[in-house]
Simulated assay, not measured.
Amino acid sequence: MKTRLLYQEDSYLREFNATVLELSGNEVVLDQTAFHDGTGGVQADTGVLYYGGESYAATAVHKGGEVVHVLDRSPSFKPGEAVRGVVDWDKRYRKMRLHTAAHILSAVLYRRHNALITGGDITPEYARDDFNVEGDMATVKRIFEEAVAEANEIARRGIEVKVYWLPREEALKIPGVVKLAEKMPPEVPRLRIVEIPGVDIQADGGPHVRNTSEIGTIKILKVENRGRGKKRIYYTVE
């Protein structure tokens, strides 16, 4: 990847300066960005790119192994020129709160029921996760309710969220570092680790809050049976 992922270094970075590396129509690749590109089940960031007196609405996408900024129109700038990016912070911060909440919830379900995530999506409004838990819907609802209650208790403790990098082989030796049922981390020499001490540790490339107290209260919206090994929970944070 040509682009330096600034959000992996500081998830709270709202504005940044960058140099245009590639331009094709309204698609732009920068040398660095604070826009998350939607990988890992977290909805991609939106925002604005500024050049001179012009502004362009931008949405990040992952395309061809790169972070591509898709603009609302073809820009007047060219490769080699400097732009300023601003992330839509309100949406980003909601996703950060939900993302960290998702890690706590998955850790609780993994410890209680050995449950793995079989699918998921995080938007600014809500998150949904599928888990390979079994049982009738009354049992599944109880499992999720108990897990969310424990996750809320953990969030209220105000635990610092740690982010660091480990060699891939070393990281994959950590029990539970991957909680996705059918997906391994990318084949890269170092993995980014997100750890909530005493609660969870996962290989993860997305933005998170610094402290679990920022999550607020996790609230279940609904629970669905999506088939064998796929019980879905929708939730938000307040």
Rank of each mutant, 00 (worst) to 15 (best):
R156F: 11
G53M: 11
S213T: 13
V163D: 04
R190F: 13
V20F: 00
V42A: 07
N132A: 10
P197Q: 11
E145D: 11
Y235K: 08
D130Q: 10
A115I: 00
D37E: 14
P79A: 04
P207N: 07
L221H: 06
E134C: 07
Y110N: 15
V140D: 08
E66K: 11
N225T: 04
A101S: 13
R156D: 14
E150Y: 06
A155D: 13
G80P: 02
I218D: 09
G85N: 00
P189L: 04
G205N: 06
I159A: 09
G205R: 02
R14L: 11
K173W: 08
R210A: 15
M137Q: 14
I104T: 08
G135W: 06
V68I: 15
A34H: 03
S55P: 02
R128L: 07
H36R: 06
E150R: 07
R94Y: 10
F77T: 00
I122R: 02
E9Y: 03
Y110S: 13
I201E: 01
I196E: 04
H113D: 12
E170N: 04
A102T: 15
P207K: 07
N225V: 00
R97K: 15
Y51V: 03
S74T: 15
V68A: 14
L191T: 08
K162E: 14
E238Y: 09
P75Y: 06
E238P: 00
Q8A: 07
Q32T: 01
T33Q: 01
E150N: 06
R111N: 13
H113Q: 13
E146I: 12
D121G: 09
V86I: 09
H99V: 04
Y93M: 05
K231D: 02
A147I: 05
